[in-house]
């Protein structure tokens, strides 16, 4: 019979370390200490983000049967999405409307960011706070505000009729794609503005002096120095605004009509009145994939542009 042999010395050492070994490990391994501090946040995000995503992925391969699911692991939902034109129409429309809103916002926001970065010297912080303030507050109310403005009996129509410019309310204002695009642009402007502002603010002022010294006037200075240097901000702003707006459904529900419905509205319906959760899951995943593809295409386009500009 064999027994584990330990010398007295080793035993004493093990006993001494027994209590201090974890502390010793912690003291020596900074990364470990960091991970322990991060653990609560990561565990909670794991439970509330990763697990649900995995479940959503799984469910997208199921089928709704009456009030129950059949976990038959089929591609039926995805095949339906690919074959029924309603889905691709809604998806493409969502992407298109988000793009329009993003483009509109970036164009409108760039001069403002430029003004803030180069022409505001006093109370810059106050300016920044006032510009970002609305975006922290109720999204629902900001969208509702546009309904007040654009409505059939809204601010614009009754205002214009009051001063006699129009006799009849303009019907295209509310419940149209234009209304949704305008509202989205207004609601998400800060997401596009902040990164552009940061990239402009970071530009070393001596670079501008150098380009002036080398003979470039204000216009060429903008196109040859400022714009290229602020492109990372423009790209970041584009992404920050485009991605969430594709999935928006509150705006379309409140100010959009039947032909302004977006993919988000359909997803919401699958989990609501239509009550086809597997289809809703498949649609959500399709939407993520579509956003990823468009995002990569946009990045590719930007890289190609950069190469071409050289």
């Amino acid at each position: 019979m064999r027994m584990a042999v330990t010398t007295p010395n080793e035993t004493a050492l093990a006993a001494g370390r027994g209590q201090s070994a974890p502390r010793w490990l912690l003291a020596r391994h900074e990364g470990l200490r960091g991970l322990i501090l991060l653990a609560p946040a990561l565990v909670i995000l794991g439970i509330t983000v990763i697990v649900p995503f995995a479940m959503m992925g799984a469910m997208s391969f199921w089928t709704q049967v009456g009030f129950d699911y059949a976990d038959d692991w089929s591609l039926r939902n995805y095949i339906e999405i690919a074959s029924e034109p309603i889905y691709s129409t809604l998806l493409l429309r969502s992407l298109g409307m988000a793009m329009a809103a993003t483009l509109l916002t970036v164009v409108l926001v760039y001069p403002m960011a430029y003004f803030l970065a180069f022409h505001v010297h006093r109370n810059k912080l106050l300016w920044l706070i006032i510009i970002t303030l609305p975006f922290w507050t109720s999204y629902l109310l900001r969208v509702f505000a546009w309904r007040v403005v654009l409505g059939f009996e809204g601010v614009i129509n009754t205002g214009l009729m009051e001063i006699g410019l129009i006799a009849e309310p303009l019907k295209f204002l509310l419940y149209s794609r234009t209304a949704v695009v305008i509202t989205l642009a207004h609601a998400w402007a800060a997401f596009a503005l902040l990164p552009i502002y940061v990239s402009l603010e970071k530009i070393d002022r001596s670079v501008l002096e150098a380009s002036a010294d080398l003979g470039e006037g204000p216009v060429m200075r903008f196109f040859r120095v400022i714009l290229p240097l602020s492109m990372p901000g423009v790209i970041a702003g584009t992404f920050l605004m485009f991605i969430p707006t594709v999935g928006d459904y509150v705006t379309a529900a409140l100010v959009g009509g039947p032909d302004a419905r977006m993919i988000g509205n359909l997803i919401q319906l699958q989990f609501g009145t239509i009550n086809n959760w597997p289809m809703g899951a498949a649609l959500a995943i399709t939407m993520i994939l579509a956003i990823t593809v468009v995002g990569l295409m946009f990045l590719g386009l930007m890289l190609a542009l950069k190469r071409w500009a050289r």
Partner: peptide, 10 residues
């Protein structure tokens, strides 16, 4: 960045 509807339904 991710549309909140995704987190919501998941």
């Amino acid at each position: 960045v991710v549309p909140p509807i995704i987190f919501g339904v998941a």
